[in-house]
């Protein structure tokens, strides 16, 4: 059965959706399933059906108030360039961060681009300002990290802006079928002495986090970034992912 026919078959969709919503899929298989639901509406509908079917079971447990400061943390982690825009029924208003994500979306971009060419393309595109809008603040720093020959993770560094401290974002390539398993931690090889500075944890989901002055300094002077499985020690030869640093714009060395 061809792939497109398979995911139009109601029984196949139903079984896959049941496993995805209520069963046991590995993270890798779940990512694949999420990609399939974007490409195959019958599968997406089956997932929605199963989710709505199982959802009332959660009512047997009491709700639990989250920590009082959680909303502030969430708001703080949203992209800095967000602005409420006029409502439209169908159009999607993407921020700079989302447009950067689109660079790695196979539905948007060039399937034949290799890792190195992709880096060059990102540099050219950003420098031409094709992605960045005049009013938004884009990354000052970018590092594409490769895993098993493909660009897997893009780390972007944003300089301090008013009250907003400098911050990093770590975004996974949507083209990957799977990701390194286990704990993943980001390090920078930085400065004249090429010291290693720990920058933070990388999660299976895209995330952003603030940097203190030391962290931002390490980013500004970084030669390369690396991901390993340990927040305490670094062995570069055992790195899971690594990639060069790209400075996207001039900044004052005292920033951050």
């Amino acid at each position: 059965m061809s792939r497109s026919l398979r995911y139009s078959n109601p029984d196949v969709c139903d079984q896959l959706a049941a496993q995805y919503v209520a069963g046991d899929m590995t993270a890798r298989v779940r990512r694949r399933m999420e990609q399939l639901t974007r490409e195959h509406p019958p599968l997406k509908a089956a997932v929605a059906d199963w989710s709505d079917r199982m959802m009332p079971l959660h009512n047997r447990y009491p709700e639990q108030a989250p920590p009082a400061n959680l909303w502030r943390q969430i708001e703080h982690s949203l992209p800095a360039d967000r602005e409420p825009k006029a409502q439209t029924a169908q159009t999607r208003k993407a921020g700079v961060l989302t447009r950067l994500l689109d660079l790695f979306n196979p539905g948007v971009l060039w399937p034949a681009v290799t890792g190195g060419a992709l880096v060059a393309l990102v540099m050219i595109t950003l420098n031409l300002g094709l992605v960045r809008s005049p009013e938004s603040i884009g990354p000052a720093y970018m590092a594409p990290l490769s895993w098993e020959g493909d660009v897997a993770l893009v780390v972007s560094g944003y300089r301090r802006n008013g009250d907003q401290p400098a911050w990093l974002s770590a975004q996974w390539s949507a083209r990957l079928d799977d990701r390194p398993e286990g704990a993943t931690h980001l390090w920078a090889e930085t400065g004249e002495n090429r010291e290693w500075v720990y920058l933070g944890a990388v999660t299976p989901e895209n995330r952003r986090w603030d940097l203190d002055a030391e962290g931002w300094q390490a980013v500004m002077e970084a030669h390369r970034l690396l991901v390993n499985d340990n927040p305490g020690t670094i062995q570069p030869q055992l790195a899971l992912m690594e990639g060069p640093c790209i400075q996207l714009g001039n900044w004052d060395s005292t920033d951050g």
């Binding site: 989710s51 959802m55 959660h58 895209n206």
Partner: peptide, 28 residues
């Protein structure tokens, strides 16, 4: 995890196509 979830909702709100409930989508 909840912080990650709401960030994901922010980034991927367009993924919700109107099929099924928002509650179901959020719980998944």
């Amino acid at each position: 995890v909840l912080q990650e979830v709401y960030l994901k909702v922010w980034q991927q709100a367009a993924d919700y196509s109107g099929v099924g409930s928002v509650w179901g989508w959020l719980i998944v």
